[in-house]
Write a protein that binds this DNA or RNA. Sequence first.
DNA 1: TCTTGACCTCAAGTGAAGTTGAGGTCGTAT
DNA 2: ATACGACCTCAACTTCACTTGAGGTCAAGA
Lengths: 154, 154
Amino acid sequence: MAILDPADMDKDLSVGEVAERSGVAVSTIHFYESKGLIASWRSSGNQRRFPRDVLRRIAVIKVAQRLGVPLATIAQALKTLPDGRTPTAEDWKRLSAAWKADLDERIAVLTKLRDGLEDCIGCGCLSLGECPLRNPWDELSEDGPGPRLLDPRR
Amino acid sequence: MAILDPADMDKDLSVGEVAERSGVAVSTIHFYESKGLIASWRSSGNQRRFPRDVLRRIAVIKVAQRLGVPLATIAQALKTLPDGRTPTAEDWKRLSAAWKADLDERIAVLTKLRDGLEDCIGCGCLSLGECPLRNPWDELSEDGPGPRLLDPRR
DNA sequence: TCTTGACCTCAAGTGAAGTTGAGGTCGTAT
DNA sequence: ATACGACCTCAACTTCACTTGAGGTCAAGA
């Protein structure tokens, strides 16, 4: 099938077309479908057919991944949308704002870690109880019992 | 054996003692040894005995991990030390300075990502070619062909 | 008709950083 | 003498996000 034939512009997409247009591998698309992140119907010959908005869904997934959001969380977020619809601009605003908060948190943790490291490079002590890098239980990062935010790569 | 008997202060440590004093699991110590991060000799009864400086080595490993350095890299760094000695304050200064650069880089990437996201939350476009979040090939993070720094969780 | 290419399913492999379990040994306290 | 805890090895399992491979189907072009 010719790619980008103008007459086909509103037709659903095969898995290969989705792969080409979204930049992800075919196997990844299968995988996302198995995880419920995207959906397809089947042609008479049992081939997947994707509505065009799958491209936007994949875009959202990819951006969320760059933000460090795990696939399972992305899947959950997408399921909160009415009818499992593809995120509108409004939906995206809500989702991305939430994810941005996690990102902020992670940046804050890493920044504190860096500052602690800066203080510590000179001393070379690494002494337990004195060195802020040694035990994660101080203000460097709220750890210990209690709720835990998005894994800050501790 | 009583723990912390003053008479034993200069003896080598069993794996259980190392675990207790370093706060890592026994299985983790086995694992680190298998990866060449630490070393031990064996007692007459085939039990591991660790020189005391293993505690400092483990401290270095743990801090490096918090910085996001993969174990394989830590292992390599430790091997660059003469005789595979445990890092001195001077060694630590050198190693941690290098790792701090990676950390800085990661923070910079995440910060740019956040800024891009901030600009994008309002628009909700996610349009390829316009949205800075969509393609990682712009100044957001130097990708594409060429050397690649420490994986910025793309 | 035959071959090619895109597609299908399902199972298994990858790598990081360990954890868990089975089955066995060592040494000491009772 | 025996029980107990700490130790031993080795293999297999875990999670995440996929990739790879084997074996099979389907439709179109030469």
